[in-house]
Design a protein around this nucleic acid. Sequence first.
DNA 1: ATATAATTTAGATATATATCTAAATATCTA
DNA 2: TAGATATTTAGATATATATCTAAATTATAT
Lengths: 91, 91
Amino acid sequence: MPPLSKTFSALSDENRRKIIDLLKKKEMPVTEIGTHLKITMATLSHHLDVLKRADLVSGRRDGQQIIYSLNLSVVQELTEKIIKFLKPKHK
Amino acid sequence: MPPLSKTFSALSDENRRKIIDLLKKKEMPVTEIGTHLKITMATLSHHLDVLKRADLVSGRRDGQQIIYSLNLSVVQELTEKIIKFLKPKHK
DNA sequence: ATATAATTTAGATATATATCTAAATATCTA
DNA sequence: TAGATATTTAGATATATATCTAAATTATAT
């Protein structure tokens, strides 16, 4: 599990949150993600890298394409961690 | 309610999360917050400003000091918003 | 009114990051 | 194997931000 700094930082960008929103519905290749965003493929690739380094998504190669999907278990753990952090008077 | 970008961005800094952690226990003046962090007062003031602009904390003057406290209702709303965002297949 | 204490503001610097174009890499197909 | 498609990497730029020192502001106390 990456540190919260990395997680929050990854989630602070609008385009990256859109990517996560897309991947919540279904996994998809980079080009398909790209059709929903107004950025170049290079920039998209950078954002995917940020999300990967935050362990929020994973990519697997399928022929020519790389299919990205949400790391559901990590997202679940993170949600709990964030809830705990935001809960007043925790600990 | 500020946009999620501003919220996540505010929460992405370790020192700001420490400030929030402190304010979860009780409200306190800037100097007291400062004793728990290894940064100058100027830097602390900047971080408080970021947290204020994200609507996460508020300051009220009490004599010479400004007492900061967590915006509990906003934090509650935000928690729900974040949970919703991170929930797979939402909407 | 002056000195002290608490906080913020101004200005500077160094690092991070969002974006782009162009080039490189990987895979498939004819 | 040559060409086409999908994705990433390299390199550049512009903006944001975390931090500091020094100065300004606000309130209290003498």
